[in-house]
Every structure is written in structure tokens, then in C-alpha cells.
Write a protein that binds this DNA or RNA. Structure first.
Length: 269
DNA sequence: CAGTTTGTTTTGCT
DNA sequence: CAGCAAAACAAACT
């Protein structure tokens, strides 16, 4: 049976999985009317096409149709309404179905994908996918030894679906300093990083669905370290310059260049 | 009320 | 041309 859903923005991978599950009520239904202010979309071709499948890859929501697919990316501020409309907002994409129901997307990027989705997307890098391959993520990390931990987690080709919140929480949970280089992180720790990228994403989803996500944040937007009670650091780190929250005391900065003070002093002479 | 940002693509500079 | 920085998008929150 149909149900409505409204969503404020929090568009990391888990939120897109929640959206996918909600949008699946329309699978098998036929588009009756389509409109929106997105450029590059052949709206006239949409009516009459059945929605074959609703899929997702990281932060992408994918609507698979017989002639092409639609890719919706909520970016930072995107939102949607299912079986209802956002008052005073113009949808980027609005779909009405012949059997009833409607799907509306706002302030997002909508693109048409001509190729088969299985040729466009590598499902193995989506941290929430059944096809997720942690070993592939490890291999890709080892290929980028100089990359910082805070940048690595945000790399959508390695950890598709991980966003800034998940980044901060995973690093805090594992006690890894965001400025640690991949090559300096011990193998065991690196494997944990890969494992937690997925693990935390599923917890994020559960918490979000229970409307208790924010209260579970330990580092993101927090001022005090919940473990050692000292003030958390806050800065825009890495190539991505995204906001990082971390504890200088309990997150270890793995650094092969660092040496004990005694050694450093000897070399000075 | 001004400032900030859960993300990505595009533009433009050095 | 590579590499990087800034802009653009625009809404909800502090």
C-alpha cells in the first residue's frame, strides 16, 4: 500500500537507501505525467514508460526505465516528497503514476543516463550495496599511500556513499587522526576502517529511521570529546577542505615521518 | 540575522 | 596541460 514520505536533507548514502526503499512502492507502475525544471531531461519521453526498478549507488538514486534511466543526486540541500508536494517549491522532477501516487524531487541534480546501469556503475564500491567488496577498497587505498584518512573516506570511487558525517564518526570510533596518511595506518587498522565505513553507514540508517541520528554523533558538530572530556578540534582538513572534528588526545596520528625526540636530537648534531 | 554547510560539477587561475 | 581554488547551486540549521 502507498505511504507518503517527506525528507529533510541529510543526503549521505544511508539517506539515499531510505529514499530508495520508500520509492520502491512505484516499481512496476507506469509514468502518467512528468514535469520539472531540470535541464537535459526529455520529459516528453517519460509518460508511458514503466518504472522497471529503483536502485542506488552511493549518493545517487537511480530510476530505471525501458528507454533510459534517471539519476537523482540531492547534493547538499536536496529534498523529496512522496505522495505529497512541498508547498511553494518548484520540483526539479515530478512524476505521477497511472496507477496512482507521485514522486517529487527538489533542489537536486537530475540527469538522464542512456547506458545500461550495470555498465555505468561499479556496485562493488557502494558501501551499502550487497555487492560491496571490502578487498577492492583496501586495494584502492594501498594504491594511494599519500592520501589522508579524511580524504580517503570521502573518495566516492573507494567509499561510495560515505559523507562528511560518516567520515568524522568512523575516524573517531577507530581513534584514527584525520591527518594520518594511508601508508602509515597499520594493516589491521586499515581493514577496520574499511569495515566501519559500511558498518557505521547501516547504523546511520537505523538511527535516522528512528529519528535519533544526531544524538548518536560522538564527534561531528560536538565540542567536547565524549571519551576524555577535552575540547574537540575543528578545522577544514585535507584536499577536500571539509569540516573535521577530532580529539587530539584519543585519535592517533599515524605518521612514519615522526621520530622520537632523542633520535631527532642526535641527528641535529 | 548573519554565518555555516550533510556534495558535486564547472569554471578559471597559475 | 596539470593541479588546484573558487564559484555556483540554494535551504535549513545554529
Amino acid at each position: 500500500m502507498a505511504f507518503s514520505a517527506a525528507e529533510a536533507a541529510m543526503p549521505e548514502g544511508p539517506s539515499i537507501v531510505i529514499l530508495k526503499e520508500a520509492a520502491r512502492q512505484f516499481e512496476g507502475r507506469t509514468i502518467a505525467a512528468a514535469s520539472g525544471n531540470s535541464g537535459g531531461i526529455d520529459f516528453a519521453a517519460l509518460p508511458g514508460q514503466p518504472l522497471l526498478a529503483v536502485r542506488s549507488w552511493g549518493k545517487h538514486l537511480l530510476l530505471e526505465l525501458p528507454l533510459f534511466s534517471l539519476r537523482i543526486h540531492l547534493l547538499m540541500f536536496g529534498s523529496y516528497r512522496i505522495n505529497e508536494r512541498k508547498p511553494d517549491a518548484v520540483p526539479r522532477l515530478a512524476l505521477r503514476f497511472a496507477e496512482g501516487g507521485e514522486l517529487n524531487f527538489y533542489t537536486c541534480s537530475v540527469r538522464q543516463i542512456a547506458e545500461a546501469l550495470d555498465t555505468v556503475y561499479d556496485w562493488r564500491v557502494d558501501v551499502m550495496a550487497d555487492a560491496w567488496e571490502p578487498r577492492l577498497a583496501l586495494r584502492q587505498l594501498r594504491a594511494k599511500p599519500q592520501m589522508l584518512a579524511c580524504d580517503a573516506l570521502l573518495d566516492q570511487n573507494i567509499f561510495s556513499g560515505v559523507g562528511n558525517i560518516i567520515k568524522n564518526e568512523v575516524l573517531f570510533r577507530l581513534r584514527i587522526h584525520p591527518l594520518s596518511k594511508v601508508k602509515d595506518i597499520p594493516a589491521t587498522k586499515l581493514r577496520e576502517l574499511v569495515k566501519q565505513a559500511r558498518q557505521y553507514s547501516f547504523e546511520f540508517k537505523q538511527w535516522k529511521q528512528a529519528s535519533v541520528l544526531k544524538q548518536h554523533w560522538l564527534a561531528h558538530t560536538r565540542r567536547i570529546c565524549p571519551r576524555c572530556r577535552i575540547p574537540l578540534q575543528k578545522a577544514h582538513l585535507g584536499l577536500t577542505r571539509r569540516r573535521s572534528f577530532w580529539c587530539e588526545r584519543c585519535q592517533k596520528r599515524y605518521d612514519s615521518a615522526a621520530r622520537p625526540a632523542s633520535v631527532a636530537n642526535e641527528r641535529k648534531q
